[in-house]
């Protein structure tokens, strides 16, 4: 491998800084504590508002406007998607909603489940 010239060095340094920043952000995102108020949002509209502390164990079925469904499960004050008929099933694999910054997202059904502060709408 030849020695990096000036341009290559600059690009290397910028990339390094960017990646470092991302690493720090990733750690910060995953460590942020979770709240209590959970919003279920579909097509940019809040369709359910749940307070996990007082929520009973239940299952909520949400039908997507374009067909398809997501079955949301609340158990032991934790919320997750138990079942869905989207092609990728990423929403199910996300598991239990833990962090304020990582929502459960189902892109095909345009569904978002996330924590929100009191009074915060979006």
């Amino acid at each position: 491998m030849t020695k990096p010239d000036k341009n290559t060095k600059i690009i290397l340094i910028i990339t390094g800084i960017l990646l470092l920043l991302c690493a720090v952000l990733t750690i910060w995102i995953y460590r942020k504590p979770s709240g209590q108020r959970v919003l279920i949002i579909q097509n940019n509209q809040i369709i359910h508002e749940i307070y996990l502390a007082s929520a009973k164990d239940q299952e909520i079925r949400i039908d997507a406007p374009g067909g398809g469904y997501n079955l949301i499960k609340i158990q032991n004050h934790e919320i997750s998607i138990a079942e869905a008929d989207c092609p990728d099933h990423t929403c199910m694999k996300t598991g239990i909603l833990k962090s304020e910054n990582i929502p459960i997202v189902c892109l095909p059904h345009k569904l978002i489940i996330r924590f929100a502060e009191e009074g915060e709408k979006f």
């Binding site: 990646l19 920043l21 991302c22 940019n44 929502p103 997202v105 892109l107 978002i112 979006f122």
Partner: peptide, 16 residues
Amino acid sequence: MMRSTAVIWNLPPLIL
């Protein structure tokens, strides 16, 4: 697509 900025939090781990 989702008209929401919430997904931006996926960006740092995705970039890494």
